[in-house]
Simulated scan of single mutants.
Amino acid sequence: MPSDRVLIDRFLDMLAAEAGAAANTIAAYRSDLMLASVAAGGALAVADTDGVQRLAGGWSALARSTVSRKAAALRRFYGFLVDDGYRTDDVGQALPRPGIRRPLPKILSHGDVDRLFARIAERVAAKPVAPADLRLSALVELLYGSGLRASELVGLPRAALAADRPFLILKGKGGRERLVPISDRARMAVAAWRVHVPADRAWLFPSGREQGGKGHLSRIRLYQLVKALAADAGIPPDRVSPHVLRHAFATHLLEGGADLRALQMMLGHADIATTEIYTHVDAGRLVELVNMRHPLAEIDARRPPA
């Protein structure tokens, strides 16, 4: 049997090549597996059920989310060992399955979004308009109008959006491609901003002093810009972030009747269970929906009073 390190490397190579795992996922798996190997005295790959359970026993002080992540990494590793013939038994089944609740993202109301865009409109209407405000307008239009991830947004090439094409093709997590609709408003905002981006820049949102840098706007800087806009619009900054705007895009689309599967594709979720966290709606709306749409509502309406 090869050493733990060799087998872990082969497992991670498989994840990258066959499962298309992202670099951050590979790094997290490597860290968890190497720590487990150290705890198992370098015998992780040959551990029996008792050994695996003892290993998991050392996680008692960790958060449930951390235990869940470590157990998932080890289960997948042992599954790989069985699939590739290194083992005949899958001891990964002895690992705990603590289960964690996926936290609901912060909620941003329609009124909050209206206030953000009203403030942007005021700034863009200034004469002369500041290029930074045109950039902010394009950024927020794409965050809320298309549900882009922060990393996807800041990494858009300068020519990513065409005036005559109401969509773009993105490569998101795990190298998965998806089609993202782009609204007329967003395309207009991007066109107004792109005038201020030198033609020799690779990125739509360049970094550096006066766009003189070679890289693109950082996610941290995007985060700061969105927080500053929230404060300017009279909204507590801790309630607004790029991810909150992505969440608002999803929530408000669902409230408007969007199909969950279509939303899954637009957001780039591999598992629809991830998309389902956006289905939180208030109880009052659900009651109203049943009273208005359920067939029994029509029967009750036709029934004569007693």
Results as ranks from 00 to 15, higher is better:
Asp164Ile: 01
Ala27Gly: 07
Glu298Ala: 14
Gly208Met: 05
Tyr78Ser: 08
Leu15Asn: 03
Leu104Arg: 00
Ala191Gly: 09
Gly175Lys: 05
Arg246Cys: 03
Gly174Pro: 04
Asp282Gln: 04
Gly99Met: 10
Val287Glu: 05
Met188Glu: 14
Pro242Cys: 04
Met34Trp: 10
Gly234Ser: 06
Val91Cys: 14
Leu225Arg: 08
Asp300Gln: 14
Lys70Tyr: 08
Leu134Arg: 15
Leu7Asp: 07
Glu177Leu: 09
Asp4Arg: 05
Ile120Cys: 02
Gln93Glu: 14
Leu253Pro: 02
Met292Phe: 14
Gly256Glu: 12
Val290Glu: 11
Gly212Met: 02
Ile272Gln: 06
Gly57Arg: 07
Met265Lys: 09
Asp50Ala: 15
Ala63Trp: 13
Arg165Lys: 11
Thr279Gly: 09
Ala36Asn: 11
Arg201Pro: 01
His247Ser: 04
Arg246His: 03
Leu134Tyr: 13
Gly41Val: 11
Ala16His: 06
Ala61Tyr: 09
Leu44Asn: 06
Pro128Ser: 03
Asp259Val: 03
Arg101Asp: 13
Ala94Asp: 08
Tyr29Gln: 03
Asp238Val: 11
Leu74Glu: 07
Asp9Lys: 01
Ala126Gln: 14
Arg187Thr: 09
Val6Arg: 13
Gly57Ser: 10
Met265Asp: 13
Leu170Ala: 10
Lys106Thr: 13
Pro96Tyr: 01
Arg261Glu: 12
Ile8Gly: 13
Trp203Glu: 09
Ala94Asn: 03
Val52Pro: 06
Gly155Met: 03
Gln264Ile: 10
Val46Ser: 15
Pro206Ser: 11
Leu33Gly: 05
Leu229Trp: 13
Gly284Tyr: 01
Ile235Tyr: 00
